[in-house]
Amino acid sequence: MSPLVPAAAALAAALACAGLVVALRPLLARYALARPNARSSHVTPTPQGGGIAVIAAALGAGAGALALTGIAPGFQASFAWLAAAATALGLVGAVDDIRPLPALPRLLLQVACVALVVFVVGGSSRILPDMVPLWLERALSVLAGVWFVNLVNFMDGLDWITVAEMVPVCAAVLALALALDRPGAALVAAALGGALLGFAPFNKPVARLFLGDVGSLPIGLLVAWMLYELAAAGALAAALLLPLYYLADATITLARRLLRGERIWEAHRSHFYQRATANGFSVRAVVGHVFGLNLALAGLAAVTLGWPGVQAPALALGAALVGLVLRRFSHPSRETDPWPAR
């Protein structure tokens, strides 16, 4: 696939997303206002639901590129199912943004959407050795997918943080997928990354618009599928390295909350990035750390593709870099914060 195709898809998604945000923001300000509470990082009522524009633009640009260019003809049916699952998760998130759903029905709907992607879109792809039964690998894939969808939602609690995390991940997936001849994953990565760039000006500190669950949940699903594609193509180490900060922050936080006997499905402010703002880091300093870390992780992921023999050292180095950032966030900052919390 020519690199011009994903580049055009990214540009189209960015422009479409920005246009949709401008059109939808007055409506969202009227009907989807996120009011600050004890667990919020923002201090003034702010509209949420910008994820509608992000997902619509990403899926629209992806579908348009597939229809107009004829690339990856075998991927068109899979993309339709992927888009359907992402749209269904977006609808669940939209309802949850307006009137919170009970935890169990929400979880069951997420499992159904992830299972659709694993069993239908994933096809015959394998990640684990053949000695592992296929049913077990599928079950583990669904479990991992549901966790990833939720952790992306958990981590979307600060201006620009999803952009700082997912734009480098999408860019890296685009490059690696092109190298691995996975045009479908490359196209989705380009479209989603472009849509997030179109959303970024409206979400910069202090944000004028939030993603909402309508955006974070399907973004988690799309990125989980892209990482699954990398792993199925033999780049498992890269697929683990790219989202390593989100994986570490969310998983460690969940484990700590479980040990404290807390209700893990309830909102809280104990993630490392949230503690960083409480420790005096500015919002831009936090997202700057996350963005820089993700660039480093993307570089390590590329190294594992070029030199497979360094996969274990690259994973160890990536884990060490993530650990340093988490430790930094856990201690007070000496900087003066010129940017108020969102």
Rank of each mutant, 00 (worst) to 15 (best):
L68H: 04
A8C: 13
N37E: 10
V54E: 14
W135H: 08
A38S: 08
V286S: 06
L293K: 03
V114G: 00
Q274H: 13
L324K: 03
M166S: 04
L222S: 11
V54A: 14
V325Y: 05
W135L: 13
G193M: 03
R138S: 06
A164N: 09
G122K: 06
L158Y: 12
L297R: 14
L295F: 12
G93K: 08
V167Y: 06
Y228A: 10
A224T: 11
G323P: 08
A29L: 01
R182K: 09
L143M: 11
A61P: 07
V146H: 06
L20Q: 15
L174G: 03
P129D: 06
G60Q: 01
A57V: 01
A23H: 13
A179R: 05
G122W: 05
R126D: 09
L128M: 05
A144G: 12
L28F: 01
G261E: 04
R30N: 01
V163H: 12
S141R: 00
V142K: 03
S141Q: 00
S270D: 15
L196C: 03
A319K: 03
P36Q: 09
V214W: 07
L236Q: 08
M155R: 01
L295N: 09
R126K: 10
P308A: 10
L259T: 08
V325K: 06
L315M: 06
A185C: 13
A72H: 10
P338S: 11
N279S: 11
V223A: 04
G215H: 05
L217E: 09
T46M: 02
A231V: 12
H271L: 08
F329R: 09
K204M: 12
A84H: 04
A185R: 06
V287P: 06
P100L: 02
L107D: 10
S40K: 07
P47R: 10
L217W: 07
N153E: 09
G50F: 04
A185F: 07
A172D: 00
A232W: 01
M155E: 03
L66N: 02
S330N: 00
G64N: 01
A238P: 09
A53C: 05
N153A: 12
L244E: 15
A112D: 00
V206E: 15
R208P: 10
P168Y: 03
L140M: 14
A175S: 12
N294T: 01
A171V: 04
W81H: 04
G49C: 05
L101I: 02
R30L: 00
L33D: 04
L192T: 03
A191F: 03
P100V: 02
W265C: 04
A112W: 00
P105H: 07
L236F: 08
A235T: 15
L28N: 02
R99N: 05
A58P: 13
I55V: 14
T304P: 11
P313C: 12
Y31N: 13
L20K: 14
P218M: 05
L259Y: 07
F291P: 07
V132M: 15
A13H: 09
P338D: 11
V43H: 02
A63D: 06
A224P: 11
A9K: 11
L326W: 10
Q311K: 11
L254M: 12
G292N: 02
F272E: 10
L91M: 10
F75E: 15
P201W: 05
G193A: 03
W81S: 00
A172M: 02
L230C: 07
L89Y: 09
H268F: 01
I52V: 15
L241R: 14
R35H: 13
V149Y: 05
V163K: 11
R334C: 10
L321N: 12
V149S: 08
